[in-house]
Design a protein around this nucleic acid. Sequence first.
DNA 1: TCTTACATGTGTGTTTTACACATAGAGCAG
DNA 2: CTGCTCTATGTGTAAAACACACATGTAAGA
Lengths: 125, 125
Amino acid sequence: MRPGPRSRRHHAGRWRVFARVERFTEPALLLLLRERPGHGYDLLERLPELTGEQRVEMGNLYRLLRALEEEGLVTSEWDESSPGPAKRRYAITEQGAQLLDQWAEALRRSQERTDRFLARYDERR
Amino acid sequence: MRPGPRSRRHHAGRWRVFARVERFTEPALLLLLRERPGHGYDLLERLPELTGEQRVEMGNLYRLLRALEEEGLVTSEWDESSPGPAKRRYAITEQGAQLLDQWAEALRRSQERTDRFLARYDERR
DNA sequence: TCTTACATGTGTGTTTTACACATAGAGCAG
DNA sequence: CTGCTCTATGTGTAAAACACACATGTAAGA
């Protein structure tokens, strides 16, 4: 029953504190797809450019892509032309691009909040 | 069954996208307590200085404070001297201050990630 | 033939957050 | 002195987000 290294609780020196923006995978996928279309496995490999050390779990990635499609934020089609196993190739829609814009604004607001936090933290360090 | 406004999914124009750092309340509490001790209700009112629009849910706040205490990050004692209902007055410990330092580092790394994201977003806007 | 890389998925548990409600002291308006 | 609001602390539980484990199949190369 010991909490793992990414558990909610952390003894000061023992476990790693890892600050993440929640649902960051969603805007990351939209940005990658705005740059160019791609399939799940491809996106899985391109994601670390944006998410860094925190790798995205593949099971949830495929589920997220289908959820995005259900909402009309991306579209997909089977690509059997290219070699290897069949791939589902995703592309961003106009709606998806608009949501990405909203995410960018939201992320800027989040940056400001964290900036204020860090400034206040540094004040009395 | 309609998802609420803070649901996981958002149609581009309809629902609000809200980027938050997960478990941000924890470092926020530690910072407030490093500045001066205080009780739950007091912290609930001071938190918006750090968290902004996203208000913290009081039920979870009290649970979080007790969890922090269990781990030795804060201490508490009943204060019945001051007027009104009895308050549980929390103070940060050395361990708590150390964890806050780790959070600050983690938040800076998170800022860098988001900066990279936004720079890449702006590139091809 | 076996292993590895590519590729897509399901099932389920844990963690984090949201929502709803319970309890009680104290001050004040009527 | 009754009801109302503000202060103050909590519990119960559901939903959302995320992690971990595993299943399935193609294709290429040792």
